[in-house]
């Protein structure tokens, strides 16, 4: 099969993945709706640490690593109305998960076909970057979905993934073709590869941070139904966002910054030249450093740190979309 045909197939398969993501999204929406009907049972001890309630004395072994379930023991409510809703929710979640797995496999196939059609890693232009980052995000989500906190992200991550993919196949689409000479380098593989990876992880972390803010508000107001109440504990989400960023931040340090500088020196003769893309990669890095600091600063924990994380994600989006579209720097490879 020639490159063009492979490229067409890839696009076709990615479109199939989009359809599957939409189905899984609907299932997750239904799940969330059922959840909203459930009651939030304020747990007696650990978990709802939003207001820093002193932990109850731990007698024997008390789960101290933070996996405490914020929602009360559901089996006690079996047969009651919320319990039925929970059963429905669980079924929908199951469907959503399976379809997401399918969609991710399809997307993975599409990305691989794309790579074959261009005979290089599939992140040479915005289209390729987007589908690969969407793949990273959905894999990250599927990994997290084994925990309850991770499952709470489902609707939002899947939504973001299919919006990204839809944009990719429509607005950003470019048929397979060679790279401009400046990109033909093994540095592309690692430099942009790391950026894609971090981008996917930051995306999921941003969803977690947004939910953290919602959950924390719900907790401080004592809301017992609706989105806020259906979420895991704010502290759990806070920790989850931190962990994802703690993984993505060093990747961003290595890829866009260190390797980017090395490549820039090879390609343009200087390792740092204040090109808009470089500036924005740095801004993103500083913003996430600010997030890590915020989490370590008294008075900035919880939703304030989450807000910093969201701002930082805004800079990620801008360094990706904004810089490629708005500015005409050396990095204008977007293909638009």
């Amino acid at each position: 099969m020639d490159a063009a045909a492979l490229g067409e197939w890839s696009r076709f398969v990615v479109a199939g993945a989009i359809a599957a993501f939409i189905v899984s999204w609907l299932a997750y929406c239904a799940e969330t709706a059922y959840r909203f009907r459930g009651r939030r049972v304020v747990p007696g001890s650990a978990g709802s640490a939003a207001v820093g309630a002193p932990a109850a004395p731990h007698l024997a072994r008390v789960g101290g690593t933070g996996a405490a379930e914020p929602i009360g023991d559901r089996s006690a409510e079996r047969g009651s109305e919320p319990a039925v809703a929970y059963d429905q929710a669980a079924r929908m979640a199951g469907i959503g998960y399976s379809v997401t797995v399918l969609a991710t496999l399809l997307l993975g196939t599409g990305v691989v076909l794309r790579a074959l059609s261009v005979s290089r890693p599939p992140w040479g232009n915005m289209y390729e970057f987007s589908i690969t980052a969407a793949l990273v995000a959905s894999i990250a989500f599927l990994t997290l979905a084994r925990t309850r906190a991770g499952r709470a992200l489902a609707v939002w991550v899947v939504l973001l993934v299919f919006v990204t993919l839809s944009l990719a196949v429509t607005v950003l689409y470019l048929p397979p073709g060679p790279l401009v000479p400046a990109l033909r380098s093994y540095w592309l593989v690692v430099h942009v590869g790391a950026a894609v990876l971090a981008f996917g992880l930051f995306t999921v972390a941003a969803v977690v941070s947004a939910l953290q803010i919602v959950a924390e508000r719900a907790e401080t107001r004592g809301v017992t139904s609706g989105l806020g109440a259906s979420l895991p504990a704010a502290t759990t989400l806070d920790r989850l966002a931190y962990r994802m960023i703690a993984i993505a931040f060093p990747i961003w340090t290595v890829g866009p910054l260190i390797l980017g500088a090395i490549w820039a020196e090879a390609s343009w003769g200087r390792y740092w030249g204040w090109d808009p893309k470089e500036v924005w990669a740095l801004i993103t890095w500083l913003a996430y450093a600010a997030f890590l600091h915020a989490r370590a600063t008294a008075g900035w924990k919880g939703s304030k740190a989450s807000a910093v994380s969201l701002i930082a994600y805004g800079t990620v989006l801008f360094s990706y979309f904004g810089v490629n579209i708005v500015f005409n720097g050396l990095h204008s490879y977007g293909g638009l």
Partner: peptide
């Protein structure tokens, strides 16, 4: 924290 933000 503030300075990091300001620099960004």
């Amino acid at each position: 924290l503030v300075l990091l933000f300001m620099l960004a």
